[in-house]
């Protein structure tokens, strides 16, 4: 699958950083504002799919390998499960929020009516893990479909 015209490439290149930064903001502020790991990951994967469609899968295949995407997805899944199992170790039950109320990172409790990013306990860690998993998973589906279709076009 070849790339599109220069106009589409330029506009995609301009709007790509804004989409990715908005998605990462939604992931990082998942415990304060609407959204979370899945929503932000879907937004970032949308931006990556825009770049893939605008520049073509041949160009994208030189930048990233499908093996790396499946590795990132496995890292996200293992991180999510690991945080959940640490709940058994430190808090007694599965999915226990053992960080909240301590002096660790993300350990604070917000005051009434105030928003602080250093709160939430295990929620931001789980948001990051699920966000990584969703970015790699959803973009991996689109990417491998584009690769297979470009191979099919070449052979035909």
């Amino acid at each position: 699958m070849n790339g599109m015209t220069k106009i589409v490439k330029t506009i995609a290149g301009i709007s790509f950083p804004f989409i990715v930064i908005y998605g990462l903001y939604v992931i990082a502020h998942g415990h304060l504002t609407p959204g979370g790991g899945f929503q932000g990951g879907a937004v970032v994967a949308s931006g990556l799919a825009l770049i893939l469609v605008a520049y073509g899968s041949k160009w994208a295949a030189t930048k990233i390998k499908e093996h790396d995407l499946s590795l990132l997805e496995s890292v996200g899944a293992i991180g999510f499960i690991t945080v959940a199992f640490f709940g058994i170790l430190f808090g007694g039950v599965f999915f226990s929020n053992f960080i909240v109320g301590t002096d660790l990172l993300f350990g604070g409790i917000p005051l009434a009516g105030a928003a602080d990013i250093n709160t939430g306990g295990t929620l931001p860690l789980m948001n990051f893990a699920v966000g990584l998993k969703v970015i790699a998973g959803l973009f991996g589906i689109v990417f491998i479909m584009a690769l297979a279709i470009s191979k099919k076009e070449e052979s035909a």
């Binding site: 504002t33 979370g36 999915f95 929020n97 604070g108 409790i109 709160t119 295990t122």
Partner: peptide, 17 residues
């Protein structure tokens, strides 16, 4: 939800905790 999970967003605290 604010005392137990430390998150302002109640939906995320339900979904993840």
């Amino acid at each position: 939800t604010v005392e137990e999970t430390g998150a302002n967003n109640g939906v995320t605290s339900v979904v993840f905790d």
